[in-house]
Amino acid sequence: MNSPVTAPFGRFDEAWPAVDRPELLAASTAEALRAWEGAEPVESVLVVDTDPEKADTAVFCAAYDVPLDASANCVVIAAKRGQEVTFAACVALATTRVDVNKTVRKHLGARKASFAPMDTAVAETSMEYGGISPLGLPGHWPVLVDEAVAAAPHVLVGSGRRRGKVILPGRFLARLPHAEVVPGLAG
């Protein structure tokens, strides 16, 4: 196992390359990192061990001194066209809101789009609510990344668990399988 490294922001006791600490990640997140073949080095993805009681964005950012504009949320969207429901993930900075009713709905070609209910999001992702990660989602899901996230030098996102968060270059998220940078996704 590699030695701890320094996180690019925040106040954390330690940070590690996420591939070295799979116990801090959801199983699917750890698997996505193990299988990573993208241009960005997988070692650029860090994980920090945190209090699961402080996983919600505002509380987390205050507790660990993380700027809100360095924190990104991954939300699960349920898109409906007729009787068919498809799921997608949207990743946007915590200082913004995903435009579900216009941008996401149109991008997915749906008649209606909404945030998936918590129990549905948890069941479909096999991740914990408050920690859903764009890393390790079902392989056929589109991952829509706001351009501000993709341009960020580093962002903090869920690890798939409420305990722990992942810090990675924004461009890493733009290179995930089925990822697409969507201008105007959030505002």
Rank of each mutant, 00 (worst) to 15 (best):
H140A: 15
V19C: 09
E14D: 14
V48A: 11
V166C: 08
T57D: 02
K54V: 04
G160R: 10
A88S: 09
V19R: 11
A92Y: 04
P134A: 01
A174W: 04
L176F: 10
A116H: 03
R175L: 14
F172A: 08
A113D: 05
S126Y: 01
T125K: 05
A26G: 11
A78Q: 06
A113M: 11
S133A: 06
D51H: 11
M127D: 09
M1P: 14
R97D: 03
V143G: 00
S28D: 12
V157W: 03
A152C: 03
L173F: 04
A152P: 01
A88H: 09
A7Y: 08
A18P: 12
V85M: 06
S44A: 15
E23D: 14
D49A: 15
L33H: 15
S126P: 02
T125W: 01
L173P: 00
S28G: 08
Y64H: 07
F87V: 02
P142A: 08
E124V: 12
A152N: 01
V98P: 07
K102W: 13
G109S: 02
V157P: 05
N73K: 05
S114H: 10
L46F: 08
L33R: 14
V122C: 05
V155F: 09
G187N: 11
R175W: 08
P8E: 09
V45C: 12
S159N: 07
T86P: 04
V5Q: 14
A123G: 04
G38A: 10
H178E: 15
V155W: 13
E43G: 06
L176S: 06
P17L: 00
L46N: 02
A123D: 09
A113W: 13
G130N: 01
A32L: 03
R162A: 01
V182N: 11
A92D: 01
W36C: 12
E124M: 11
L25M: 14
D65S: 15
V145N: 03
T29I: 12
V166F: 02
A72V: 00
A26F: 08
T96E: 05
D69R: 02
